[in-house]
Design a protein around this nucleic acid. Structure first.
Lengths: 198, 198, 198, 198
DNA sequence: TTTTAACCGAGACGGTACGTCCCGTCTTGGC
DNA sequence: GCCAAGACGGGACGTACCGTCTCGGTTAAAA
């Protein structure tokens, strides 16, 4: 319950931090990044703007921090025993991660983050990092299993799946249809890893 | 008396339209989409805000129209005589198109356009349409030439190249390194079109 | 009927003139001078702004002209046979004249007309002229009748009645209560004209 | 960073209030009520429009408040020892009050204030209130002194002087000639108070 | 336990841009 | 030619937020 204005014990540190993140993510979900304002986040978190600026110097960084705090754990990549199964699991994980605050934020942050080299790097890491590492792991296991030849693996090829998913999300919005994921795996990634790179 | 004292006859219709587009694209190049304001565009085009709003109901639509007006003509896709040559030409064309106002706009528009179903469709068409059609044509020719078997062609596979290029642009900004293009062609598209889809 | 937009024979000269005055007076009555705009008058008269500006250089002059055209004829001052009767008739005439477009206009014009010496004079003439002349005539007759001694008449004394009525109208708006008129006549004008000026 | 770089500590409350009134009165004096804009008042007071609207919901109320703050104190009415002397002093006081911001404002406010019953009442009180109270006091003293018989005093008669002065001011602008004041006293008020009301 | 300093909420502040209305001028067709 | 219609360059409106600042009150740690 958020609308109760009677005196409650004043929040500090962790509790306030969490309340602000919650308000930020709620706003993100309701109005999107473009229309998210510090004013409304503060009001929603029942705090003052100063408490936001004391912690994050800009909307961009507040949103990045809030989203980061809620990013699904890359966790151990599900090992389904087959390359195809692992790939489907992985892309579905990516798809799920995008479908919510993180996706909405990524969309909006793209144009603002570029201005700051460091922010851009953080955004990249949050958006692409886990996916890349997971893909690397999945393919490593497939090579170990003998499903894939090491010569077929290149960095670019590891990126193709995520690129297709993210691309679709950015231009079409959520949700990502599962048929897309299946097609990407069956028509693109699996065949690619089946033939040697030049 | 409040009005302007300029000498040149007042601009109307086409001439004004063009001046506004020019101002919009200049602003886009200088400050980016996020910081582009109607106020400054009007000032830069030496007109009033009303003349902007009379034509486009929002910043989003003004920018889309301005960018659309300057999109490089997909035109005839260079026919280099080989699939690989055509693909390189095509992706370099896409890369060049992104490296300027259209790219800067696409980045910023992504988060705002999604709110309006129609705007999103327009953005997709402007951003992906030409690329897809060109890719379709290039591959059609390769099939005719016998370089590629018709069974290897699927809609998803035609999208892979553009997805990789756009992806890199969005997260890393311009310019797109040519090595990326070459790798995408040699490690991904050509091999993919060399093996049948399932 | 004003709302019919179907083709009617185009108005010119007199007819257009009259239509504009009508629109002006209607606007004056509905929204008052402060909120009367050339734009709305033109629309209401189903003409273009240029046709207004071709005839009157400003809102002030349009309104003055429109009001002037409708000012009640000072006419011959009713001769009731007694000073008191004449005075009551005269002030009621003034009161009636104020209660409508002329009054509403006078109110608003006061602050704008001062800027232009000529306009101010016109406003004074339209607002006070007829009243003064009528008062002069009424008192002249009373002197002739022997009701009033010539020595009791001065320009200031002739203005008192109108000043009281106009004053009340300006600060309290219409309508002017008849008791006010009666009191002004009985407590002020008649006694004043009954004692000699110093 | 967008904010101001001024050195002096930001003004608040009283200080800002006063600065805004000063700016308002200066604008009133320079361009008049009709051309006074919130934009220029804010600029002149070196603040933002929001700080004006936070305090007064409209130009009308800002101007009324500013003028009210500077109205000469009705204070104790000068006691010159004679009715005539008191009346001259009083009307000269009124005349002086009109000849500045209060007069300029009154002129412009007349047409706008009528729309709001409350504003109209405030305007009346500010414009006529003090004058009426002072006149009441002056006449009370004259009655005490035996200069005037109580039966000669009526509310209307107490208003005549102010009405004549204000009338002249509204239609002719400042300054009010002293001969007018003298005539009003000698030809109108003094004689009136010398004969009984009916 | 009391003091005290940091932190909190609230919101005023100087400022930018918004999208709208109207200004007074100018241009275009049509009658 | 004059008319209607309305585009044009521009000024001001009243609103929403920006990022900074100031103001009391808590409230947790230091004394």
């Amino acid at each position: 319950m958020v609308t109760d204005h009677r005196k409650q014990p004043r929040r500090r540190g962790e509790a306030l931090h969490a309340a602000i993140f919650e308000a930020t993510l709620d706003e993100l979900a309701e109005v999107g990044y473009a229309k998210l304002t510090m004013e409304r986040v503060a009001e929603r978190a029942r705090t003052g703007k100063a408490s936001l600026y004391r912690r994050w110097p800009s909307r961009l960084e507040l949103v990045m921090a809030a989203v980061y705090s809620v990013l699904p754990d890359p966790a151990d990549v599900a090992d389904t025993g087959s390359l195809r199964g692992d790939l489907l699991a992985l892309l579905r994980h990516t798809s799920a991660a995008l479908d919510g605050a993180p996706g909405e934020a990524m969309r909006g942050l793209l144009s603002e983050a570029l201005g700051d080299r460091g922010q851009a790097a953080t955004l990249r890491e949050n958006s692409q990092g886990a996916g890349r590492r997971m893909m690397h792991e999945v393919v490593r296991r497939a090579v170990e299993r003998g499903e894939v030849e090491a010569g077929a693996v290149t960095p670019r090829r590891l990126d193709v799946g995520q690129a297709m998913i993210r691309q679709h999300f950015l231009f079409n919005g959520p949700p990502i249809p599962d048929t897309l994921i299946v097609e990407v795996v069956d028509e693109i990634i699996v065949p690619l890893l089946g033939c040697p790179a030049p």
